Amino acid sequence: MEGNRQDLIKIIQMKFPRLSKGQKIIAEYILKHYDKAAFMTAAKLGQTVGVSESTVVRFANELGFSGYPSLQKELQELIKTKLTSVQRIEITNELIDEENPLKSVLKADIENIRVTLEKINQNTFDEVVSEILKANRIYIVGFRSSQALVEFMGFYLNLILDNVRVISRGVSDVFEQLLRVGEGDLVIGISFPRYSLRTIDALKFAKDRNAKVVAITDSLLSPLAAHADYTLIAQSNMVSFVDSLVAPLSLINALIVAVGVKQKDVISETFKTLENIWEEYNVYGGRSKNYD
């Protein structure tokens, strides 16, 4: 990782004498603030250093990149696992419009979903749905902010299937909960930068025991992908100290719906039963019941 950063620095240093005045300003900013530049659009970077957006694009071309997005992607791959919470707060201050954080964040989340839709491999998605349906047992694992995604996926899959288990941090260690995992089982791991080492270890553990492994993460370069049979990519660029989980949640929602479509008869009976239970026990409010 650090070596890659040094390579990029060497390229900038080598090219620096031939850069225009405006491009030199960009180069100096990136060398000093590469962690912030990695999450800026070309327009935002230009505005920050006082040059035009076209100058930023020409700068990327001069370094040998096909365009600014390619340079930005390399910067993001370089630093996204290294950012501390303090650095992410600093990035928030740089990238978020303090007058309208609502608009800034929603626009960023819309872009994350758009990019996810472009990147997702439909064949891989379909294969994962098939693996979910034929698995003996399904384990879903992910920690820290990804735990919310794990719980959501587990809740809805449990309404459709009867072989789903959510791996949690509790009295039992992760490996104890995966003790009987093996051939015919499916383990779904969910993690985004900064990647949870426990999730990575859990996927390696499952793979070593011949279970099928699905990774839901942000890149094929993610450490989760190294232990996965199938990797589903969801964009999760950080626009603040809060993880953006909108695109991953949308992807998981699509998986649940796709499984549900294949199991529509089962779902119909399940929800008929649930509606009766909900009404009997007043789960969703309505008229009060006297339990005396």
Results as ranks from 00 to 15, higher is better:
residue 1 M to H: 13
residue 6 Q to M: 13
residue 10 K to A: 12
residue 11 I to W: 08
residue 12 I to S: 02
residue 12 I to T: 03
residue 13 Q to T: 03
residue 16 F to A: 03
residue 16 F to M: 02
residue 19 L to W: 01
residue 19 L to T: 01
residue 20 S to L: 01
residue 26 I to M: 00
residue 26 I to T: 01
residue 27 A to F: 07
residue 29 Y to L: 00
residue 29 Y to A: 00
residue 29 Y to F: 10
residue 30 I to S: 00
residue 36 K to N: 05
residue 40 M to W: 07
residue 40 M to G: 05
residue 41 T to C: 02
residue 42 A to S: 03
residue 42 A to E: 08
residue 42 A to D: 06
residue 45 L to R: 03
residue 45 L to N: 10
residue 48 T to L: 01
residue 50 G to W: 12
residue 51 V to D: 12
residue 54 S to A: 13
residue 55 T to Q: 14
residue 56 V to N: 10
residue 56 V to H: 08
residue 57 V to R: 01
residue 57 V to N: 05
residue 60 A to F: 07
residue 61 N to R: 10
residue 65 F to V: 09
residue 65 F to A: 02
residue 70 S to L: 04
residue 73 K to V: 00
residue 77 E to Y: 09
residue 77 E to C: 04
residue 78 L to I: 00
residue 78 L to W: 10
residue 78 L to G: 07
residue 79 I to N: 02
residue 82 K to D: 06
residue 84 T to N: 01
residue 85 S to Q: 04
residue 87 Q to R: 05
residue 88 R to S: 02
residue 89 I to L: 09
residue 90 E to Q: 05
residue 94 E to I: 10
residue 95 L to Y: 02
residue 96 I to Q: 01
residue 98 E to K: 01
residue 112 N to T: 11
residue 113 I to D: 04
residue 116 T to K: 01
residue 122 Q to K: 05
residue 124 T to D: 13
residue 126 D to W: 04
residue 127 E to G: 12
residue 128 V to T: 09
residue 128 V to H: 07
residue 128 V to E: 08
residue 128 V to I: 15
residue 131 E to L: 14
residue 132 I to M: 15
residue 133 L to K: 13
residue 133 L to G: 14
residue 140 I to R: 09
residue 141 V to L: 07
residue 144 R to C: 03
residue 144 R to G: 09
residue 145 S to W: 05
residue 147 Q to E: 14
residue 148 A to W: 03
residue 148 A to G: 09
residue 149 L to T: 03
residue 150 V to C: 07
residue 152 F to S: 04
residue 154 G to E: 08
residue 155 F to K: 13
residue 155 F to W: 13
residue 156 Y to L: 12
residue 158 N to E: 15
residue 160 I to V: 14
residue 164 V to L: 13
residue 167 I to V: 14
residue 167 I to N: 06
residue 167 I to A: 09
residue 168 S to W: 02
residue 169 R to P: 15
residue 172 S to T: 14
residue 173 D to N: 01
residue 177 Q to I: 11
residue 181 V to A: 01
residue 181 V to N: 00
residue 182 G to F: 08
residue 182 G to Y: 10
residue 183 E to F: 12
residue 184 G to N: 13
residue 185 D to N: 14
residue 185 D to G: 09
residue 186 L to I: 14
residue 188 I to T: 11
residue 190 I to F: 09
residue 190 I to C: 06
residue 194 R to Y: 04
residue 196 S to D: 15
residue 198 R to D: 11
residue 198 R to Q: 10
residue 200 I to C: 06
residue 201 D to N: 04
residue 201 D to G: 03
residue 201 D to H: 04
residue 203 L to E: 04
residue 207 K to D: 07
residue 208 D to C: 00
residue 212 K to T: 14
residue 214 V to I: 15
residue 218 D to P: 13
residue 219 S to V: 08
residue 221 L to P: 11
residue 223 P to W: 06
residue 224 L to Q: 06
residue 225 A to T: 11
residue 227 H to F: 11
residue 228 A to C: 10
residue 235 Q to A: 02
residue 240 S to K: 08
residue 244 S to C: 01
residue 247 A to G: 07
residue 250 S to D: 08
residue 251 L to N: 06
residue 252 I to D: 04
residue 256 I to P: 03
residue 256 I to A: 02
residue 256 I to S: 08
residue 260 G to D: 12
residue 263 Q to N: 13
residue 270 T to W: 05
residue 272 K to R: 09
residue 272 K to E: 12
residue 278 W to G: 10
residue 279 E to A: 09
residue 280 E to H: 13
residue 288 S to H: 11
residue 290 N to P: 05
residue 291 Y to F: 15
